[in-house]
């Protein structure tokens, strides 16, 4: 066989293996297929709520319209915006500090066997500890201040980001590291060019969970330790003190919406991009 026919054979194989380029589904269809089901679910939920309220049994569950009125009044007083702003500020900042502390800690624990054996059980234990238990300790230590909020957020988020980082690194195929070695990468160079990018999907999962823990911990702290600034947790606590059931529900809904929005606008797109680039996500 001559060189030319071998070249042709190779080109033919390449073309066959790659297959025809599939047409992508149009944008409107993708948007529709991802937004329609949750919208329908929401409508069903709304209908059930309305149904429960309108049954003849006396109930003090507020109707959707009462909650709507309450939301409008809170909005007009600029309370809800302020609370969301303050809570997001504390939550995001606390999360970022947690990530900055937990990431190097996680890498160290993953790579240094002695450190891992001594600290991993503790970290895992801390992860299953409800962060509310840190609130009294925080109050005694820092008083009713923002420091208490950050303290509780950090205690909630750091263990879960550390564990996410460790499992991200554990999942790196050993072959990637061997190839890195063969290519001459050692120590920090190996970490930068091989270990960390390879661990990214698992690490991102850890960050996502870390955010959820930050947000939950913050709400618990705000509910109990009302500091000077108005947060969503405090909004609920204030409503309870006024025996305003609609106010409590407005607060809960706001917490839910913020949690969903952060995931939808930040974590999900990031995760999808990373996974798609690596061919770990079809469609």
């Amino acid at each position: 066989m001559t060189v030319d026919t071998s070249r042709e054979l190779e080109a033919g194989l390449d073309a066959l293996e790659l297959g025809p380029v599939e047409a992508r589904t149009p944008v409107w269809r993708r948007v529709l297929s991802s937004t329609l089901p949750p919208l329908v679910a929401l409508l069903v939920l709304y209908a059930v709520w309305q149904l429960v309220v309108s049954t003849e049994h006396p109930t003090n569950l507020p109707s959707p319209s009462e909650v709507w009125t309450e939301l409008q009044s809170q909005w007009d007083q600029n309370r809800i915006q302020q609370a969301v702003g303050n809570s997001l500020y504390h939550g995001v900042l606390g999360f970022l500090i947690s990530a900055a502390v937990a990431t190097p800690l996680g890498v160290a624990l993953a790579r240094i066997s002695l450190l891992r054996r001594s600290l991993r059980p503790l970290i895992t234990g801390l992860q299953s500890l409800p962060s509310v238990v840190w609130v009294p300790a925080g109050i005694l230590w820092f008083g009713l201040s923002a420091k208490t909020l950050f303290f509780v957020v950090l205690m909630g988020a750091i263990p879960s980001i550390v564990n996410g980082t460790i499992s991200g690194i554990d999942q790196v195929p050993p072959l990637y590291l061997r190839v890195g070695h063969v290519l001459g990468a050692r120590g920090l160079t190996l970490a930068r060019h091989v270990l960390l990018p390879a661990a990214l999907p698992g690490y991102l999962g850890g960050l996502k969970q870390g955010w959820a823990f930050s947000w939950r911990s913050l709400m618990a702290a705000e509910l109990i330790a009302s500091s000077g600034t108005l947060g969503l947790g405090q909004l609920i606590e204030d409503a309870r003190n006024l025996s305003s059931f609609p106010g409590v529900i407005v607060g809960i809904l706001a917490i839910l919406v913020v949690g969903i929005a952060v995931d939808l606008l930040f974590f999900s797109p990031l995760e999808r991009t990373i996974l798609r680039r690596r061919g770990l996500l079809t469609s």
């Binding site: 195929p173 072959l175 990637y176 061997r178 190839v179 290519l183 001459g184 990468a185 160079t189 060019h193 091989v194 990018p197 390879a198 990214l200 990373i274 680039r277 690596r278 061919g279 770990l280």
Partner: peptide, 18 residues
């Protein structure tokens, strides 16, 4: 054992970079 976070070209380039 190509690195999936890099393109084919970047995989080759990494060897040169290192």
């Amino acid at each position: 054992a190509l690195y999936p976070w890099l393109t084919a070209g970047e995989n080759v380039e990494l060897a040169l970079k290192l």
